[in-house]
């Protein structure tokens, strides 16, 4: 019988394929569980698109409808958040982020699979890249005028130093909070499922009466699983929306 010692065991990574090379150190290219699941996500997204295009005929297959609805939702979100003339240039980035996080979250909800977006280092570095990239975009576009982002319109003069400190702190905190929001949601959800599942297993194992009574908590856990599916979709939407709004801040300055 297989015991899980800590609920955090499900986030452990193992090396599946190892590069042993004499002269160069190629251990960066090792295929770990993480790499395997990245490849699976890529395969799922590519095969969804291949199924949709229907051998390059004009009319797509039945898969067309859901993919087109996702595309339309993200298009409208980007248009609403960024707006102006430049929103179309940033749409591919936001659609890619949304699709990747959505598929990774949904795959991680298959039992005994691996949660890509619960790896804190990965998601935090992703959000740092987005934050730094949008900051460089703003500096390139506006020069020193970019710092007017830290002073809201119509601030009384004595309040300006205080507000600049608060606004710049909140601007720096965005880099953490964007990634931490996604990864904490997924981490907390998966931990909750493991802990509740372990409790239910202990309860069912007592005797035959509790085996039958266990249906009630089992239904509750099923409801929580449905909530986890909703959270997986909502968090990917929120990540895409907030990325769009950060890019908008550096493109148009308020």
């Amino acid at each position: 019988m297989y015991y899980i010692n800590s609920p955090l065991d499900q986030f452990e990574m193992n090396t599946l394929l190892k590069f042993v090379t004499p002269f160069f150190d190629m251990s960066n290219l090792n295929i770990t569980t993480f790499g395997l699941y990245i490849i699976i996500v890529l395969m799922v997204i590519v095969s969804l698109n291949i199924l949709t295009t229907n051998n390059n005929t004009i009319i797509g297959s039945r898969w067309n409808l859901p993919l087109e609805m996702i595309y339309d939702t993200i298009l409208n979100t980007t248009k609403g958040q960024i707006g102006g003339k430049l929103w179309g240039l940033y749409f591919p980035l936001i659609y890619t982020l949304f699709m990747f996080i959505l598929i990774a979250n949904l795959i991680s909800l298959i039992p005994y699979s691996f949660a890509l977006t619960a790896q804190i280092v990965f998601v935090i570095s992703l959000s740092f890249i987005i934050w730094l990239g949008s900051t460089i975009t703003g500096f390139n576009k506006h020069g020193w005028l970019f710092f007017s982002l830290f002073v809201p319109n119509g601030t009384p003069t004595p309040l300006v130093p205080l507000l600049v400190i608060i606004e710049s702190l909140s601007y720096i905190a965005r880099a953490f909070s964007l990634g931490l929001r996604l990864t904490c949601n997924i981490l907390a959800g998966h931990l909750l499922m493991v802990i509740l599942g372990g409790l239910l297993l202990n309860f069912i194992n007592i005797n035959k009466l509790t085996l039958i009574l266990g249906i009630i908590p089992f239904a509750m856990i099923l409801a929580i699983l449905c909530l986890e599916f909703a959270i997986a979709m909502i968090q990917s939407y929120v990540f895409a929306t907030l990325t769009a709004s950060y890019i908008k801040d550096s493109l148009y300055l308020h």
């Binding site: 909070s177 931490l180 929001r181 904490c184 949601n185 981490l187 907390a188 909502i234 968090q235 929120v238």
Partner: peptide, 14 residues
């Protein structure tokens, strides 16, 4: 708004 306010609670959990 739900996601933003839920995240503050998850920071405590973290």
């Amino acid at each position: 708004g739900f996601a933003l306010s839920e995240a503050t609670g998850l920071f405590c959990l973290m």
